[in-house]
Design a protein around this nucleic acid. Sequence first.
DNA 1: AATCCGGGGCA
DNA 2: TGCCCAGGATT
Length: 369
Amino acid sequence: MSADLERQRALLAWFAEAQRTMPWRHPRPGPHPRPYAVLVSELMLQQTRVDAVIEPFARWMRRFPDFASLAAAPVDAAVEAWAGLGYYRRARALHAAARRVVEEHGGVLPQDADALAALPGVGPYTVGALRSIAFDRPAALVDGNVARVLARWHASEGDEASLRKRAWRDAEAELAAEDAPARGAPSQWSQALMELGATVCKPGEPDCAGCPVHAGCRAAALGVAATIPPPRKRAPVRDVFAAALVIVAQRDGRPHVWLRKQPEHGRWAGLWQPPLFEAQSTEAALSAAQAFAADAGLHLVARGEVEHVLTHRRYRVSVLAATVELPPRSVDAEPTRWSPLAEIRGRGDGVSRLGVRVVDAATSSGSSS
DNA sequence: AATCCGGGGCA
DNA sequence: TGCCCAGGATT
């Protein structure tokens, strides 16, 4: 057996022993009994760590157990069930994909690569993941883990974009030989590559001493594994100054918070959060919030600051609170609602993480600064 | 090719 | 603090 195929055999043997348990993972080789679960998990896992997905996945599967139930639900229900996971466009994509599967494929996920790629939210990586993991077909796949693993195996050099292209060629080459162990277990192979990247061949500090394919790794032999791939160029994080207005009213004997629904596009699309006034400075943001409050006859109290960091933005939010006697039930024509404070604090169904943090800051005792 | 889109965990 | 994560869509 060639060195490359021996490396495959070693990795597959390691994976059979060392793989982590995941709610969506089918431990046995072969096709997955539930392609829908694979699609849900793959969309949730895009740019998201395994640990962060486990609970949301379980909740989602209880609420939308199959393509039919998801397709029948309003898109807002899907977005709100996604709350806390981030990248909320994925929820709309998954919902649209389910409707398409029901309408165009009889409720059965297609196996054809082109049909899969036509589904919203399904790009090159996810096509490979579905074809290999759901259907056990020999399809290549490259995510951040696989790109790093393959770059180290081959000691590839170059910028991020060229390494990605190289990784796709290398990943497909692994599946080319008729007698390749990877071809014999495509689902296990795809998952093994990613598992190795996530748990052993980690960014920054690879555990080469504990690596099952150390012998077949050129970067390890050269002692350069830790420097591959090179650091990525990153856009700077820009500050966004904002003021949040947390309006509390008693309803049915319990405190409720006034929430506004975000537009369907942009950040936190379709989610709920207290009104946020963005401006060029904290002072300008506070002025905007106070102008709004003056119109409504509200008496504002400063309740501190919240710093919320996204990939390319750092929100510096001044939190203002106001208590009103009677909620204005008549403004329901607007996309607003009153939500029980306890519910928002619990998990905030349909509320952005920033919204939850702002409400916490406004209503927890003695948080003023 | 750049930019946008969340949130969290970890050194 | 910086880095990265089972990426994709848009421009």
